[in-house]
Design a binder for these strands. Structure first.
Lengths: 128, 128
DNA sequence: TGTATATATGAATAGCTCTTCAGACGAGCG
DNA sequence: CGCTCGTCTGAAGAGCTATTCATATATACA
């Protein structure tokens, strides 16, 4: 089989052709991987989960997520660059909100899963 | 406000307390971030998307996803260590399949989103 | 039994990412 | 007008991750 001008050995050539045909475009998957990468840092993930229920300012976000304000600001800058988060400025305050509907869906799914598995395997009780 | 034995300035203290209370456990979010991290590499993501429709052997996976067999094997090893993927061995072949239902949901959602946005913004036509 | 094949592994390198620190900026306040 | 406060930024260092190359293992086949 010849792919990208480079000969590759395959076992089930027709199957490979079919799967290859049905795969989303490589560039799209790279973009998707990039989004997952933005959710792959605990600090950023906590920021985004905190924003699920509404906007918060930087210092409150830092407090909620347990990180320095500098770290939070760096993370928010990155998320803002990718249009995942948007900012509303008033005076010297900056209020961030979750702006990307697709990311919100991914977060909802992920949080629901953690709560579900916690209900199945409760290594610690829910109230603290 | 006092968090983790360390004083932090907050603007809306009661709101911070509420959001903090409703946040999933930090350890759970770290695990979730780790899962997102596994989906954050284009090579690994292509492997997993290829496996959505059924099992494939390593060399076919390498061919479908356009990477070296060594790279694919390393990636599969990592996914296997996290129980996202499982292997069936027969002879000298190794057939991998997607094993994690939660990851499958995330992948379905992500792929549906790429196909949806491609339908809205078709910069290239669907058939190639 | 010896050789080819499919996969797995280890080590090394290069590139990236996160955190921190120091300081800049701009808005409000005295 | 100068000071403080909230946020932003840049640079630097440490740690992590991906890729490659070389080699190992183990199965099938001659």
């Amino acid at each position: 089989m010849d792919i990208d001008g480079c000969t590759v050995r395959v076992v089930d050539a027709p199957r490979v052709a079919v799967v290859r045909e049905r795969m989303p475009d490589a560039a799209d998957l790279t973009d998707t991987a990039e989004v997952f990468g933005l959710l792959a840092d605990p600090g950023r993930l906590r920021l985004l989960v905190a924003l699920l229920e509404g906007e918060l300012c930087v210092c409150d976000l830092a407090a909620v997520t347990g990180q320095s304000e500098s770290a939070a600001s760096h993370a928010l800058r990155l998320l803002r660059a990718h249009r995942i988060v948007a900012v509303r400025r008033t005076g010297r305050m900056a209020y961030y909100r979750l702006e990307d509907a697709h990311v919100r869906m991914l977060l909802d799914l992920a949080v629901a899963h953690t709560e579900h598995t916690q209900a199945i395997h409760p290594e610690r009780d829910g109230n603290h």
